[in-house]
Design a protein around this nucleic acid. Structure first.
Lengths: 336, 336
DNA sequence: GAGGGGCGTCGAAGCGCTTCGACACCCCTT
DNA sequence: AAGGGGTGTCGAAGCGCTTCGACGCCCCTC
């Protein structure tokens, strides 16, 4: 391995000069800089990460903690993770992938060992066990998701409350009065994942304001579960003409079942989904949807964290405004 | 931050003794070990990763390069990534997440800087640009996928050729003669991703041996593409009774279209999928399938790499034997 | 022409750990 | 009783980099 000292010797300067060329923390004459850069190129020099971390006590690594669960829609996680990784690189950071498996201890280990300069946590629960540990460490952290107590923490998330409201508004505008919400799996509500509850708040709040009837039913993904759920809904509220779906793996089953029952979309019933763009476009009926902005979320999380790491304070809470795209799955309510 | 020296002082021993307690590289008396361990606990000591890496020239980090593409089935990638991360932890390694974005340079950067001790590459193409660089570095690497030239590289993958053969055999045993293969998107074949071509080899080879007719059609995911593809297939080979699908996002559309056309599964046509277990089970018809063993793949890749890192040579090529699970989507061919 | 202030460069002191050789000590053997 | 071989511990020398203070030089100002 080529070292700084060798580069310095090759360029005929001192080691510190090479270091300053690399970091730009002191001014260097153009001629010297060029000479050094040339040596770096010719020798194929790469600074040693460990030595750098030791001397500067910054590792230039961001830790990303992904959940271990598989009951969440995985592509979204992946998209966020990839957005985090690529955005991090543009700021000179690498990303360490931590799974939930290790539990809260991972926070202590990574912070304590100086492995990472900061962390990003995905799938944060309302009362997340990692938060106290996070507050103890001096390292900055950004949460993707919104816990109950956000003091001292930066959070990034889609504004799910506004999302819920937006879906209801859309259906209301088209004259629907009876709306059913196909929610996430019951387990998601049971562990109080914030986004699911906040969506529900938004849905219910706006429904009340607009005088609509709203029925909420959690639903595991898949055909069988969806069939049961749908039957129950139509039994309780036969007049339901609007659906809001917030469970990607229930989308296609719902469409299939409606078709099977002879209920045309959007002529008889309208469906609004809260899901990634791709799902909405690739579904058997192109779905009117509010997109879950995975990339945007990952990017913002990194940018907040980098701001914090650079001493610039970021915002406390960054809520991404929802956008509803009208496609083929929603239309005016049928005449009664 | 607590340092080794502070622990040593607290325990009344020298720094090197603490280091040896931690690494176990020299024998330490039980009493001393206990005293040191106690101090470590009481002070909440975590070894500094940078210092460690510098002194030992091993970072205890594995780099995982995931593809940037989104035309592959993402959940599989995610599952592999998570399996890699958790398996790595059990061997004392952390995982650095690299995206394809940075390109082959990432290999040079990570190897050159000593950031990672070894790498795992996902979605390796037959003639992958990263391979020459990989061979240049002294760091061991494991590929997930099988390139054309494997000299000097360790590879882990499902045995896709055997997988293809297995699918054909299954259909042949049930009396099907005309088989259609719904393949991955054309782009996947165009960039010569090995697994797709090897599957095809296996399918074709066995079909020839068993005297079956085989039609292969690449297919983008989604309903529209699938509709076109299916129409073409049935046009060319109206007698087709067996389908092999190797594109997760074509599975559900295919089932829906068959249903729509009044072709019952499995009474009229049989469908065999090559997909993750979860997709097979959650589909609208429970699918006879060969599982893509994502977790197993990730785990094996890490174990191969760790073996290499520990000086033990691993195998050159590890092919996972396919397993076909019979479910509800395949049955005897209909009488002609 | 002396003093002041940038600018560009250097030397040296660590950063916190691993690891090697040295050595003290004890228990056996002869 | 002397020698030999473990065993357990220590001290010191780095690992390759960053960073701080120092210093020489040149240009400007009064």
């Amino acid at each position: 391995m080529v070292t700084l000292a060798e580069v310095a010797q090759h360029a005929g300067v001192s080691a510190s000069t090479v270091s300053y060329v690399l970091s730009g923390k002191r001014s260097i004459s153009v001629s010297t800089r060029r000479r050094v850069e040339r040596s770096i190129r010719e020798l194929g020099y790469h600074p040693n990460a460990g030595a750098r971390a030791l001397a500067s006590s910054r590792s230039n690594i961001i830790a990303l903690m992904v959940p271990l669960r598989t009951d969440m829609y995985v592509p979204v996680m992946m998209e966020i993770a990839i957005a985090v990784a690529t955005t991090a690189r543009t700021h000179g950071y690498d990303v360490l992938l931590l799974t939930g498996e290790e539990g809260p201890d991972a926070v202590r280990r990574v912070a304590g060992s100086g492995l990472a300069d900061g962390m990003i946590l995905m799938d944060v629960e309302l009362d997340d066990g990692r938060l106290p540990l996070l507050r103890e460490t001096d390292r900055p952290a950004v949460l993707i998701g919104l816990p109950a107590d956000t003091t001292g923490l930066t959070c990034v998330d889609l504004d799910f409350k506004a999302t819920g409201a937006l879906c209801v508004e859309h259906l209301a505008e088209r004259g629907h009065h009876d709306i059913a919400v196909i929610g996430e799996a019951p387990a998601v509500y049971e562990r109080h994942t914030g986004f699911a509850e906040r969506t529900l708040d938004g849905l219910r709040g706006r429904a009340r304001e607009l005088g609509l009837r709203l029925l909420h039913r959690p639903c595991e993904g898949g055909y069988d579960a969806m069939a049961v759920t749908l039957a129950r809904i139509l039994d309780e509220r036969p007049g339901t003409t609007g659906f809001v779906v917030q469970n990607e793996s229930a989308v296609e089953p719902l469409l299939a079942l409606l078709r099977q029952q002879g209920r045309a979309v959007p002529e008889d019933v309208s469906v609004v989904a809260i899901c990634p763009e791709q799902v909405a476009v690739q579904a058997s009926v192109r779905l009117t949807s509010v997109a879950v902005p995975a990339q945007e979320t990952g990017r913002l999380a990194v940018e907040q964290l980098v701001a914090r790491l650079g001493g610039r304070g970021g915002d406390e809470i960054v809520l991404i405004a929802p956008e509803l795209t009208v496609r083929a799955s929603s239309g005016p309510a049928p005449a009664p």
